[in-house]
Design a protein around this nucleic acid. Structure first.
Length: 220
DNA sequence: GAATAGATTGTCT
DNA sequence: GACAATCTATTCT
């Protein structure tokens, strides 16, 4: 399980996940990505973190997805491409968000990475966030700020997550009991699709943005 | 801890 | 011209 204490000199553990990982159903990929490692090697140094929060976006029938209704444009073109690539978009006039494309070409589905627990390159993340003394678990808590901390911007759009400087490395699966599902964040406009439990979080983890547990009975 | 408003610009109607 | 897969500070309770 994620815990802090690494520095920028540590080597990134694991190897890139195989292409086949991203061919599984998108909900499965979103669930399985929890605990995996998002890596970005930029000129300033390598940074990496454990994925602790994801959301699935499921193509034309999902009214919360950028590909709703089969919409296709220069912005979301990468969603229609092969799996295992990064779809990076710009929102609210100031933030980038990074997604992982799933499913074969022409099936526009993806998983939004919403939060990480920082693993490697904490000083660099702190510089990019301009927060020199903040607690590490606050550095990547949210889809916009994690891109800021990792140095991900529009130039990473379309990057191959198996071979480029932006990758996802394998790590041990998390036990089912540590995972919770909730509705997605910020998609109130999506009608009935807004309530679908397509957000996955590491239950109770500090680095998760927003609700960290579902409503299931037995929460202590 | 929860609710609210403001920042700021690419994308689409 | 409206809105957006957000974040932060502020103002409550």
């Amino acid at each position: 399980m994620p815990s802090a204490g690494f520095t920028s000199n540590d080597r990134v553990p694991g190897a890139p996940l195989p292409r086949s990982f991203y061919m599984a159903p998108t909900l499965t990929v979103a669930r399985q990505l929890l605990g995996k490692i998002l890596v970005h090697e930029a000129p300033g140094g390598a940074v990496a973190g454990w994925i602790v929060e994801t959301e699935a976006y499921r193509g034309p029938a999902d009214r919360a997805a950028h590909s709703r209704g089969g919409h296709r444009s220069a912005r979301n073109e990468v969603m229609y491409g092969p799996p295992g690539h990064a779809y990076v978009y710009f929102v609210y006039g100031m933030h980038h968000c990074v997604n992982i494309v799933t499913q074969p070409e022409e099936v526009p589905e993806a998983v939004l990475i919403r939060a990480l627990e920082p693993l490697i390159g904490l000083p660099l993340m702190q510089r990019r966030r301009a927060l020199p003394d903040v607690a590490p678990w606050r550095l990547c808590r949210g889809p916009g700020v994690l891109c800021r901390a990792l140095g991900i911007d529009g130039t990473a759009n379309g990057a191959d997550l198996l071979t480029s400087r932006l990758r996802v490395h394998d790590a041990p699966d998390l036990p089912a009991a540590t995972v919770a599902r909730t509705p997605r964040i910020g998609v109130a406009y999506a009608g009935t699709d807004a309530a679908r439990p397509w957000r996955f979080v590491v239950r109770g983890h500090r680095a998760v943005s927003g609700p960290r547990r579902d409503a299931s009975p037995g929460d202590a």
